[in-house]
Structure formats: structure tokens, C-alpha cells
Nucleic acid binder design. Structure first.
Length: 447
RNA sequence: UGGGGUGUAGCUCAACUGGCAGAGCGCUCGACUGUUAAUCGAGUGGUUGGUGGUUCGAGUCCACCCGCCCCAGCCA
């Protein structure tokens, strides 16, 4: 139906005996059915009225003729308001004039839940702050619903991709004691154990699980208390973190490339209607079918400098630097082997150049920046202990993590993909806050 | 935390050099048997973010404060 790639219910016993989904109306042309839905638009022409409703699967126009419905129902039509919920019963017919291609000749109509006249969202432009204050209603819009369907498709695609490769999906704790990275942390009291921190990565636990199961991935919420206020940041976001035993960094990047390619192609294939609603020009996404670019950090620095950037070797890439690099290649780019100081303690020292570590960030095209950070992990006990000390991290908190190197150390690698950044890129949404149902960011905890 | 914006009706925005607070949409009432963000007629709507100051007079100028947006840092 309009704006959504909704699979019609299987024929046979009705999935819901009292209510027909709008997406299923194509199976009921000529039949009389009941649709329960929310009013999005009302128009009246004297003794003829139109009521357009949505039920999450599509949009239906009901045609109400005064002479063809009971008097009470005609009166009820006059009381309908935007976003009230209704039951419409009538005959389904195909009609090119109706949005969605089908309409209903309403024979009876009942108001289920009234909606007062001050419903805040109108079919017109609104400011972003107003919309976020009314996020619980904003999600009812066709555009927001399309984003949520793409999100759902991507989540399914993640599981399908890893299931096909025999990865084990593992869940890691959200309340943690040890610290994964250096970024900001949310904290809370935890009984007699002192302070607990909301997880900002499941990776360290993922490494332990990889030693137990071989290849694993996590898929869960993660929390960053950084005071970031850009369109790329959320304080609560969802991350997919695979961790693979016996993978080196090259194996790791090959997997990432297959993964990202699969995600993009899956949405293009299965959610074309949603992308159309979002007015996404899908041509730039076709670049994922080519091999991704791989550029050494040192070469990336030279590239930025040649284009007038002030970046110096040893510094992490800034957002404008990333943009220059991706614009140069016009497709996803791995920037590999960063300087040790710019990256986390657990990344494996590069044997070919010990000033650097075996890692890569994947930069998405169209100014999206980093969607993946990944690395081979340091598997040498002494070296990782040295790095912990160098970073000034509390070694005692990492006892169990160090044990992974002490008892049967193993080559392994993994990465983290930011779900929201990936959705925003694929959907062509400017700000990440639109691609999660209820965004958490600085200055916003409700709704 | 810095840099740059912005704040006027329920919403989106106007208001010249300081001179009566405006429009569209929405909403209410009325007309209309094929509307597509219908159309037409009538009505409804304000602590101009806050406090103080300059002035005969402040939405407009000044000071401070608050909210929000964009960018940067940090990162997925």
C-alpha cells in the first residue's frame, strides 16, 4: 500500500477476526470489511464526505454519503477530528482517485476514541524542536513510519547476515564495572559494589565470548555521556559488535565490507516504497557494489594536507578531514593503521610499523562520517598490560580481560557498527535523531 | 566547553531608520454529492523567551539571564 512495503497477511484464517488491515484490502475488493484506524484527513462536500485513515499498514479513503448511512453515523462523521480512532465498515472497491488505489464505500461508522481539537501536529511544516517535543505523535507520520520500517528491516538483515555465517548472537551486560573506552560514562549506584557504569561497548565481553564460541556478535544499546551536540551523536544508540576468533585485520575488513554491502542492498531490495517516501535518491548507494577503498592513515593525512587541511600525522581525523577523504573516493573508505596514541589500548600493535595499530574506521559516503570502528585486538599479554599502564587505566579492573591473554591467547578481531548512523546514511536523513523512535541526547530525556 | 545563528498567535513566519501587533495555516459557524494540504463566506486568536535599562514612545536599541538550532571537539 501507499508508502510502505507491507506484506499482505497470508490467506486462510484471518489473523484478526474483527479488523482488516489496510494493506490487505487488495484481497477484499467487493467484500464488506471493517477497518479500525486513525483519522488523518477530513473533507466534506455537503451531503458527501471523505475520511482518510491510517492504520500503520497503509492509507484508506472512506467515502461517506449521507443517504447511504444511518442518521446517527452521518452525525458521527461530523464529530470526527484529526487523529481520532474510528471503525469503518463498508464495501472495498478499487478507485484510482483514492490514495492507495482502494477506497471504502462506508455503510457504518463509529468513533472509538475521540481526539480533542488541539492535536498539535498539522499537515504542514513544523520546527524540529516542536516535533521532538511531540515525538509520540510525530511517529504517526508517513515519513517517520517509513524510517522505522527501514530500521526494522536493517535489524533483521543484521541477524540474517550473521546467522548465515554461523555467528552466535550474544548479549553483554549494560551495567558494568570495567571501562571499555575513554569517552564519557553514565554512572549509577550499584548496591555495595560502588558505582556501576552504563556500557559504552560490549566489546571486551565479546572478546571473552569469541574465545568460547568462535565467532559472535552483539546487538544492543550503548551509552555515551559525551557532551556532543552534532547531527551524528546520540547519548543512547544501538551498536552491532561482532568479534571473531582467528580473524586478522584483513579478514575483519573483508567481513565489514560484505556486511555493509549486504545491509544496503537488502534495504534497496526490500524497502523501495519507504525510500521513495523519504525521497531518497538511491543512485549514490549503488557505489557499495564496487570494492570499498582502503587507504593507509599516513596516505590519508597526505591527502588531507594536499587539499589544504591542517591535519598532522599523529592526530585523529576530524569531521572535515573525513569529508575530504570520502569525497575523494566517492564510496565507502577504510582508513587503516592509525597512530597508537589516537586509538584505544586494546588495538594490536602493527608489526610493520609499531607507531601504529592494526585498525580501520569505515567512512560512509555523502558526508556521513564514521559508521564502523574496528581493529585486530592486542593478543600479547605484556604489550596490552603496558598499554593499559601507559593510558593510566586501572589495571586491577581489567583482571578478567587480561586473563584472555594469559590463558590461551588467540588472534582475534572485531568491529562496532553504529546502527543509527547507518540508517541515516541509507535513508538520507540529515540528523540521526530522526532514525531512532525516542532519541536520547543532551537536553532531551522525554518523551 | 568554544564559534555562529535564532526566539513574535496553537503551528510556520512577516513587521522599514524606534511610531496603532500582522499574514497564512489550524480551529469555530455556514454553503456545497468526487474531495486529494478542496473551495467560498463569516468568526476565533498575543505576558513579542525573561529581568532590568535608554527613550515622549521598544518586537526593534543596550546589559544580563534562559531555551533551541547549526558547526567544532569527542565518538558509532
Amino acid at each position: 500500500m501507499e508508502g510502505a512495503t507491507v506484506v499482505p497477511s497470508p490467506s486462510g484464517p484471518a489473523m484478526n477476526r474483527s479488523t482488516t488491515r489496510i494493506a490487505d484490502l487488495c484481497h477484499h475488493v467487493g467484500a464488506t470489511v471493517t477497518v479500525r484506524a486513525w483519522v488523518i484527513h477530513l473533507r466534506s462536500k455537503g451531503k458527501l464526505g471523505f475520511v482518510v485513515v491510517r492504520d500503520g499498514t497503509g492509507v484508506l479513503q472512506g467515502v461517506v454519503v449521507k443517504a447511504e448511512v444511518p442518521e446517527a453515523d452521518w452525525a458521527a462523521f461530523g464529530t470526527l477530528t484529526q487523529e481520532c480512532s474510528v471503525a469503518l465498515t463498508g464495501e472495498v472497491r478499487a478507485d484510482a482517485r483514492a490514495p492507495g488505489g482502494y477506497e471504502m464505500g462506508v455503510r457504518s461508522l463509529a468513533l472509538i476514541g475521540a481526539s480533542p481539537l488541539d492535536y498539535p501536529i498539522q499537515p504542514k511544516e513544523h520546527g524540529i524542536d516542536f516535533l521532538l517535543d511531540h515525538r509520540h505523535f510525530w511517529l504517526r507520520s508517513q515519513r517517520q513510519a517509513a524510517i522505522m520500517r527501514v530500521r526494522s528491516e536493517l535489524e533483521l538483515a543484521v541477524h540474517d547476515f550473521f546467522a548465515a555465517r554461523d555467528f552466535v548472537r550474544c548479549d553483554t551486560p549494560i551495567l558494568t564495572a570495567a571501562i571499555g573506552e575513554r569517552a564519557g560514562l553514565f554512572s549509577t549506584d550499584y548496591f555495595d559494589e560502588g558505582t556501576a557504569y552504563l556500557a559504552q561497548t560490549g566489546q571486551l565481553y565479546g572478546e571473552a565470548l569469541a574465545a568460547a564460541l568462535g565467532r559472535i556478535y552483539t546487538f544492543g544499546p550503548t551509552f555515551r555521556a559525551e557532551k556532543s551536540k552534532t547531527r551524528r551523536h546520540l547519548t543512547e544508540f544501538w551498536m552491532i559488535e561482532p568479534e571473531m576468533a582467528w580473524y586478522d585485520q584483513d579478514d575483519n575488513m573483508d567481513l565489514q565490507e560484505d556486511f555493509v554491502r549486504y545491509l544496503v542492498e537488502r534495504v534497496l531490495e526490500r524497502r523501495p516504497e519507504e525510500l521513495k517516501v523519504l525521497e531518497r535518491d538511491t543512485a549514490p548507494l549503488a557505489c557499495v557494489s564496487e570494492p570499498f577503498a582502503r587507504v593507509d592513515y599516513t596516505d590519508a593525512v597526505r591527502l588531507v594536507q594536499e587539499q589544504g587541511g591542517a591535519l598532522q600525522w599523529g592526530e585523529d581525523l576530524g569531521a572535515p578531514d573525513e569529508a575530504m577523504i570520502v569525497d575523494h573516493y566517492q564510496r565507502p573508505v577504510f582508513v587503516v593503521n592509525y597512530p597508537k596514541e589516537a586509538k584505544a589500548f586494546y588495538m594490536k600493535e602493527n608489526p610493520a610499523d609499531p607507531r601504529t595499530v592494526r585498525c580501520a574506521d569505515l567512512l560512509a559516503p555523502e558526508g556521513r562520517g564514521e559508521i564502523i570502528g574496528g581493529s585486530q585486538r592486542e593478543d600479547d599479554y605484556d604489550k596490552i598490560l603496558h598499554r593499559l599502564t601507559e593510558e593510566g587505566l586501572p589495571v586491577e579492573a581489567y583482571g578478567w580481560y587480561l586473563d584472555l591473554r594469559k590463558y590461551g591467547t588467540f588472534t582475534h578481531a572485531g568491529f562496532g557498527l553504529g546502527l543509527e548512523r547507518t540508517i541515516a546514511w541509507i535513508c538520507g536523513i540529515e540528523h540521526i535523531r530522526e532514525v531512532i523512535p525516542f532519541p536520547r541526547m543532551m537536553g532531551r530525556l522525554t518523551p
